[in-house]
Amino acid sequence: MGGKSSTPLIVKGKRLDGRKPEELRPIKIEAGVLNRADGSCYVEWGKNKVIAAVYGPRELHPKHLQDNTQAVLRCRYNMAPFSVDDRKRPGPDRRSVEISKVIREALERVVFLNYFPTSAIDVFMEVLQADAGTRCAALTAASVALADAGVPMRDLVAGCAAGKVDGTVVLDLMQEEDNYGEGDLPLGYIPSKDEIVLLQMDGDFTKDEFKTALNYAIKGAKKIYALQKEALKRKYTTNKETAKWI
């Protein structure tokens, strides 16, 4: 968490964008937005714009990378250089390596990897515009893209974060709140199983604040989960030729 903000982030129970503490930003999820990918998904979450593509299962080379018992799931979270205020140097940095890892571990819980020995399933997540909460948006998009690719899965994983701003626990931090707030708690959650598959935290929470924050994030993830399923079903219940991400 960064420095202190000179102006309050919550005034009379309302946040900078007018949200109440327990309110999500507007979210749009669109499945099947890329033509070449086996599956894809675009997520617009506040000012975040994230696109995920899935390729595979496909042949994995070189051979020593193969696992004879299951598919190898490979995830790459990447930020476009233009997605943030100060241009980001292209390519993986330590932050994106870590995020790719925790997202992969969250998804491995749901994908039936054992159906596809020796193969690879690639999940690419590109953050096109970042406004805090990109890892949750990327996980949400990746999970829909996997389903869209016809990859067998136990369920979808929904991502959602909670945090602490001006001493108040809030759902779904936006950029200013992330920069000047006191804590962030990103969550990956499977509502039908009540399972936490991604959990990170940084900042300063008391035990009670943490409890509230985790419960907020779970509630948020349940709403995201409903939107994910709705997005998949919408792909075949509307007559659009192809979905568009922009």
Partner: peptide, 11 residues
């Protein structure tokens, strides 16, 4: 067009 069956998602 009318769906021939209900669309379902994983889970």
């Amino acid at each position: 067009l009318e769906l021939r069956a209900e669309v379902v998602a994983p889970g």
